[in-house]
Each structure stands twice: as structure tokens, then as C-alpha cells.
């Protein structure tokens, strides 16, 4: 007997599949939806029930933030830290990804594994020793210090994404360039780089988002130069509920847009990581 599914079993399987998809989507979308509704509702409506399906588009909560003292500074800090993280993690991660895809060296597989292990230690555990070390070296409360911490968080992803990008470029293209008068470096800049630039951009944006979203290290390691996440975390703990919603919304939106833009490349990374 071969295991051929009866129409009933197939129907049930399909039903299960659809339900799972709906549930998973709801898991992600429903909270975001409420966040959106509450952000765009008038302050007094936030606590009300039932909710209107379409929000009132009351910009009161959002406009509050534009004038909120320190908000713009924190936003600038966030952008600077995230930008620096982006540059550092690509500058360090891309060569590592290239090496992993093109060269055979001892401990290559171990290295690929270890690179993920950098994410195995919870940040709260590292925060205190890091803070002490940063105070000693004078890196505490600086943009560059925080960017360094965020870079360590972003590098594993930068390495894995660029590794999969470089692996997708046939070695023969580079070899052809060498026979046509290129050195290793010019072959890279004239052939490999143009081909992976979109992927590198995606990987950079992902590093940006990791830094943008990170709150713990930011809150512990900065005092004066807070990033937006750390700033909102501290300020909003005392704020009324409608401002909390609006603050949350401000934080989530850019990350969502960025991740959506680079989703194709993230799938590529997981494809490789699962091998």
C-alpha cells in the first residue's frame, strides 16, 4: 500500500495549512494594527472600547513628538549610531563573507558556527562588564562606543548575507576577469562589486535596522547622548498611554519599511544558514 492521501485528508491538510498561515499573520499584524489605530486616535479614544476599525487620523499624539524636547537630538543620535554600525559591519563583515565563500582555510566550518555564537550571550549579561570597560576607556556615552556594540550584534548577519551573495557569483566570472588583465582587486571592483551592490545595500540596511531597534545597550551605555529607543524608553515610562502608543509607532515604522525593502536578501541568508 502506498500512502496516497484521501480527498478528506488532503482537505484537512489544506485547512490546517491555511489556518496556520492566518494565525501566524495575525500574530504579527494584529498588534501592529492596534498600534496604528491608537497612534492615529485622539488621546481620549485610546482607552475606549470597542475600537473603530478606521482610526480618526488625529495627529495630536504624533505632532506632540515633533516638538518634544530632546526628541530631535535622540533621533539624530539614532541615525548616527545606526549609520556608523552600518558602515562598520559591512566594512568588517563583507570581507569575511568573501573569504568564507572564496577561500578554503582551516576551521572554516567552525568559524561559520562561531559567528552565530556571538549572538548566544544575552546582552544584559554583557552590559555591565561592557559599561565598566567603556568607562575606563572613555567610550561610555559616545556615539562610537554604542556603534561598536551594535556592530558586534550586526556582524553575524552581515557575514552570512554577504557570504551567500558572494557564493551566488560564479567563480568563473572572477577568473575570466583575471585572464582579461585584472588583478584580484580590480576583478573585484569591476566585476564582483557591481553584481553584489544591491545585496550589499540590503545587508547594510539590515545592520541599520538592528542598531535602530536595539534598546538595551543603548539605555545602559548612554546617558546624555541617548538614541531614540533609549530616549523613548526612559521618557515614555512616565508618559500618558496615548504617547506611548505614538512613540512605539515611530520606532516600529522605519524598521518595518526597511525590512520589507530587503526581504529578498534576508531569505537568501536563511537559505544558506539552514544548510
Amino acid at each position: 500500500m502506498t500512502a496516497v492521501a484521501t480527498p478528506d485528508a488532503r482537505k484537512a491538510g489544506r485547512w490546517l495549512y491555511v489556518t496556520s498561515v492566518v494565525l501566524l499573520c495575525a500574530w504579527v499584524i494584529v498588534p501592529l494594527y492596534f498600534l496604528l489605530i491608537n497612534t492615529l486616535s485622539a488621546p481620549e479614544d485610546v482607552q475606549s472600547y470597542p475600537k473603530a476599525f478606521f482610526p480618526a487620523f488625529d495627529m495630536g499624539s504624533l505632532s506632540f513628538f515633533v516638538t518634544f524636547n530632546g526628541m530631535i537630538d535622540a533621533l539624530l543620535n539614532s541615525i548616527m549610531v545606526a549609520g556608523l554600525t552600518m558602515i562598520l559591519s559591512i566594512a568588517i563583515g563583507a570581507p569575511a563573507g568573501y573569504a568564507l565563500s572564496r577561500f578554503d582555510f582551516r576551521g572554516k566550518e567552525l568559524f561559520r558556527l562561531l559567528i552565530l555564537l556571538t549572538r548566544a550571550f544575552p546582552l544584559p549579561l554583557l552590559a555591565l562588564p561592557l559599561a565598566v570597560m567603556f568607562i575606563r576607556t572613555g567610550l561610555d556615552d559616545t556615539i562610537i562606543g554604542l556603534a561598536l556594540v551594535h556592530t558586534t550584534l550586526a556582524i553575524p548577519f552581515a557575514v552570512l548575507i554577504t557570504f551567500s551573495l558572494f557564493s551566488g557569483i560564479p567563480m568563473e566570472l572572477e577568473e575570466a576577469a583575471w585572464t582579461l588583465g585584472c588583478t584580484r582587486l580590480t576583478a573585484f571592483t569591476k566585476v564582483v562589486l557591481p553584481l553584489i551592490l544591491p545585496g550589499i545595500a540590503a545587508s547594510a540596511i539590515f545592520a541599520f535596522v538592528i542598531s535602530w531597534n536595539e534598546v538595551f545597550a543603548a539605555a545602559v551605555l548612554t546617558i546624555e547622548n541617548r538614541t531614540l529607543t533609549a530616549f523613548l524608553l526612559v521618557k515614555l515610562s512616565e508618559a500618558p498611554i496615548h504617547l506611548k502608543f505614538a512613540g512605539g509607532f515611530i520606532l516600529v515604522l522605519p524598521a518595518l519599511i526597511f525590512i520589507f525593502a530587503v526581504r529578498k536578501y534576508l531569505f537568501a541568508m536563511w537559505g544558506i544558514a539552514n544548510r
Binding site: P170, E172, L173, E175, A176, A177, W178, T179, L180, G181, C182, T183, K190, V191, P194, L195
Partner: peptide, 29 residues
């Protein structure tokens, strides 16, 4: 290195650069 040997190579999978036109491919070297 290959570039200093006075050789040219044709690869099994052609290795035509996808980001360049045919003209620029032929003119690459």
C-alpha cells in the same frame, strides 16, 4: 598571474559578465 602570461581563456560556462553589454564584454580586456 594570468594577466601577464599572454593568454586568453574561454570558459565552459562562458563567464560572460552579466552587468555589461556584449560590446563592453568583448572590450573588457
Amino acid at each position: 598571474p594570468p594577466k601577464d602570461r599572454g593568454i586568453a581563456m574561454v570558459f565552459q560556462n562562458y563567464a560572460v559578465f552579466p552587468h555589461l553589454t556584449v560590446f563592453e564584454n568583448i572590450g573588457f580586456g
